[in-house]
Computed example of a mutant assay.
Amino acid sequence: MSGATASRVIDQRVANLDELKLERFEQGDKYGCDAVRIGPLLGAKQLGYSYDVVPPGKRSCPFHSHHGEEEMFFIVKGSGTLRYGPETRKVRAGDFICCPTGGPETAHQLVNDSDAPLAYISVSTMLPAEICEYPDSGKVGAFGGASTPRLRHMTKADSGVDYWKDEA
């Protein structure tokens, strides 16, 4: 290895929260956060992980459930409310949250209803195909493929067509 500028593999696999470059996201009045997808930065292959900082009064994503990927969250700082299926509960720094696969009964969302930022780490299995349901809006999303851009299709759950339509 030559000099102090040589990059070691081990150093490419480590990132500290205070060194991450967060990107701002906002959508309408409800959604907003500063976030970064950490997995790709460190070369992760089968796990996805990100860091989100959600300002007071916001949430980072819609209420949703996964049929393929399992997720977990770790609250780093702050507090908020976890929506899970038909229930809610307060969460705070130090809480681990498990979101296994399923239907609407496992739908989940973190809401920052406090007066301070809510920061959390999310970890998910990375599968080549995924189906998500969005109970609040009645949508279904299909995601998949190894190529870029990946398939991403959103539709209303009641907009399906018969399997044999246009196959004659």
Score class of each variant (00 low, 15 high):
40 P>N: 05
140 V>K: 12
168 A>I: 08
117 P>I: 04
52 D>R: 05
75 I>N: 02
7 S>Y: 01
117 P>Q: 06
162 D>F: 10
44 A>M: 10
29 D>W: 02
125 T>K: 07
42 L>A: 13
148 T>L: 11
81 T>M: 12
104 P>Q: 08
92 R>Q: 15
136 D>T: 04
44 A>R: 03
94 G>T: 03
100 P>A: 07
67 H>G: 13
130 E>C: 09
149 P>V: 07
140 V>E: 08
47 L>T: 12
90 K>F: 02
156 K>V: 03
5 T>D: 14
147 S>L: 11
54 V>R: 00
128 P>D: 14
162 D>H: 15
43 G>I: 11
107 A>V: 05
73 F>P: 00
148 T>W: 10
151 L>N: 09
163 Y>G: 00
51 Y>T: 07
138 G>K: 02
33 C>F: 07
39 G>A: 13
60 S>N: 14
77 K>M: 12
5 T>V: 13
75 I>G: 01
167 E>H: 09
125 T>Y: 06
66 H>M: 09
115 D>R: 00
155 T>H: 04
85 G>T: 04
49 Y>H: 11
93 A>I: 04
28 G>K: 06
153 H>G: 01
152 R>P: 01
109 Q>Y: 00
29 D>F: 05
119 A>L: 10
48 G>E: 14
71 E>V: 09
162 D>M: 09
87 E>Y: 14
138 G>C: 14
130 E>P: 04
13 R>F: 15
70 E>W: 13
58 K>G: 00
77 K>N: 14
30 K>R: 14
142 A>T: 06
66 H>E: 11
26 E>R: 08
3 G>P: 01
40 P>I: 06
119 A>H: 03
72 M>T: 12
77 K>C: 10
33 C>I: 03
45 K>C: 08
129 A>E: 13
48 G>P: 02
154 M>S: 08
155 T>N: 02
100 P>S: 07
168 A>E: 15
56 P>L: 07
107 A>F: 06
49 Y>T: 11
99 C>I: 10
108 H>V: 06
29 D>A: 15
